[in-house]
Simulated assay, not measured.
Amino acid sequence: MNHGLVAGVDEAGRGPLAGPVAVGAVILDPARPIAGLGDSKALSQARREHLAPLIQAQALAWHVEWVWPAEIDRLNILHATLAGMSRALRALSPGPAHALIDGNRLPRDLPCPAQALVKGDAREPAIMAASILAKVARDHFMRELEHRHPGYGFALHKGYPTPEHFQALRELGPCEQHRRSFAPVRALLAPTLLD
């Protein structure tokens, strides 16, 4: 059994029509446990915002990797996310001896042995911490994106496919942060067949 450093990995933002996926990777310090960790989706925004700096201050290593819409469109959402997970693990210093990755798929080119954990963000503290960092970082980015691309409502829906987002897409068309490979965006870009 390997008693080396264990990293948790999770992402935020696979489902939205716009913006990047954020992938968090965290090696927690067993000597400095962080109270109140949980699945980022189950925590309030205020709780996530409170925990993120604690994780950054007390973890042995952490990194948030960005997977941008162009890469998502080139590789597809699954393969782009897996590539981001591999990069996030490689960016950790010190590097992990083992990784626990939320979900049921493992990237091919990992820098260490790994295990996929379904619902890992509700079971494993290192994955919970990675989930929180990814969600907080992505939410911050989407609020900033609202200033660069006003009118889409990114600060509210964070790029997810809500009725308000669909309405803005119909009125404004896609911006450069929209994922062209996602069907609702692609449909708006398709040339009309009525000509």
Rank of each mutant, 00 (worst) to 15 (best):
V9G: 00
A190S: 11
L194R: 09
L75V: 00
A70D: 13
R32T: 14
E65M: 09
R32G: 08
L89H: 09
A134T: 10
V26E: 05
R74K: 05
A137S: 15
G173W: 08
V118L: 15
L110K: 04
T162D: 05
G24H: 02
K158Y: 03
L189K: 08
F154A: 09
E71P: 00
M85P: 00
K135M: 06
W68P: 00
I101K: 01
N76K: 05
V9N: 00
K119E: 15
A52F: 02
L169M: 13
C112E: 15
G13N: 01
G103Y: 05
A183M: 07
P191V: 03
V136L: 10
G95K: 09
L28R: 03
L51F: 13
P107G: 11
G84D: 06
R179C: 07
L188A: 06
A7P: 09
L92P: 03
M85V: 02
I127P: 00
Q177V: 11
V118A: 14
P125T: 13
I27V: 15
L60G: 02
H165P: 13
L193C: 01
L117T: 10
D29L: 08
E124M: 04
A31P: 01
S93Q: 15
R105P: 02
E171L: 14
L194M: 02
A88I: 06
A83R: 08
A137I: 03
A99R: 12
I72N: 00
R48W: 09
P163G: 03
I27M: 10
Q56V: 14
R123Q: 15
G103L: 09
P111Y: 13
Q115M: 06
L172Q: 15
R180M: 08
I127R: 06
R14V: 02
Q115V: 07
G4L: 10
R48H: 09
Q45I: 03
E11S: 01
W62N: 04
E124L: 04
L28N: 08
R179Q: 06
N2P: 14
E124S: 09
L78Q: 10
A25Q: 12
Q58M: 10
L78T: 05
A114Q: 07
H149S: 11
E65L: 09
G153D: 11
I77T: 09
A42I: 02
D10F: 03
W68V: 01
E65Y: 07
A126S: 15
P33A: 07
L89D: 04
A91P: 04
H147F: 04
A35P: 10
D109M: 00
R105W: 06
A88R: 02
D109W: 03
V185Q: 09
A91S: 15
L75H: 01
A126D: 07
L28V: 14
F166V: 02
I27H: 03
E164S: 14
L117Y: 00
H140I: 05
G95E: 12
P163C: 05
S131F: 12
E71R: 13
L193K: 06
V26R: 05
V9I: 12
N2M: 12
S40I: 08
R74Q: 13
A91F: 08
